[in-house]
Design a binder for these strands. Sequence first.
DNA 1: TACAGAATTTGTAATCATTACAATTTTCGA
DNA 2: TCGAAAATTGTAATGATTACAAATTCTGTA
Lengths: 156, 156
Amino acid sequence: MIFSDKVSKTKVEEYLRAHNIRPSIQRMAVMEYLANHRTHPSINDIYRALHPTVSTLSRTTVYNTLHLLAEAKAVKELSMEDNVCYYDADTSNHAHYKCRQCCKIYDLFETEIPLLAEIKKLVENDSRFDSADLYFRGICPKCAEKEERKKKQKFI
Amino acid sequence: MIFSDKVSKTKVEEYLRAHNIRPSIQRMAVMEYLANHRTHPSINDIYRALHPTVSTLSRTTVYNTLHLLAEAKAVKELSMEDNVCYYDADTSNHAHYKCRQCCKIYDLFETEIPLLAEIKKLVENDSRFDSADLYFRGICPKCAEKEERKKKQKFI
DNA sequence: TACAGAATTTGTAATCATTACAATTTTCGA
DNA sequence: TCGAAAATTGTAATGATTACAAATTCTGTA
């Protein structure tokens, strides 16, 4: 999926059809949510966000839909530790970075991590591989700054 | 941990002490198992393997021990999809490769993936990061060959 | 438009990994 | 040897995911 600021319903419908997925109300809702919320939400996040408006939606359908979307390579499934799957509508070549403090997941694109291009090549040229994932972990700048401020406070 | 063919009990004890972990019977058993079984076992694998001999061992202790070992960086915790943690006694810089067919996890070392050195450098030079993991997926050569043979059979 | 069959959705129950927790046991230093 | 601290244990709780069967919706055809 290519991202504009706000992805329209029509765009989502086209996208699903392009991946041979029949665009039901529920599938559209899930895909639209993912396309417009680039925070790598979990199934639960998605379910909780959509349920109030799409009251008919069941948790099972969210599972079904995301498996279907992942199978069709319309979304990317991430699983970095903590035994929960996160979903990403951006299927382009990029890495992920999870902050140990705030637990947010950030995207890291080729502009920042040029290595990604080489990893992609590696996958393309080695028949054993069909995909590669690069995950970073650490404390994100925001959390590092907060920590820094806390420390300073102590010494005033 | 540096691996010889078979890691001795004394070696395991030294290794634990070096990581400030008191070498109890249970911890020794878990660490020794991990050191001598380079198959990236899950908690359950370890528990099921050890329980018959160390009959006193509880599942909770295996969890406690592995968390402790991971915390002390004596082992590496892997979590590639399927929401189960796998453990690796080899804490050197290497990537992992999981076969979609047989689900085995293979090690990929720097000799094979020179990129690993660059990723390491990246982590060392970027304060946001403290670790990176590179995971590959695909069909392993053994499984690919099996598949090939099956196909041929069909046409005889 | 009506209908049958296929696809999709739903809700509930089951499964499985992990964690919480409190009681028991073991270890270690005084 | 004794008592506190550390480690272990078993059970119960949690939480994500899957299984499954019933209900609903959709699609193509007559």
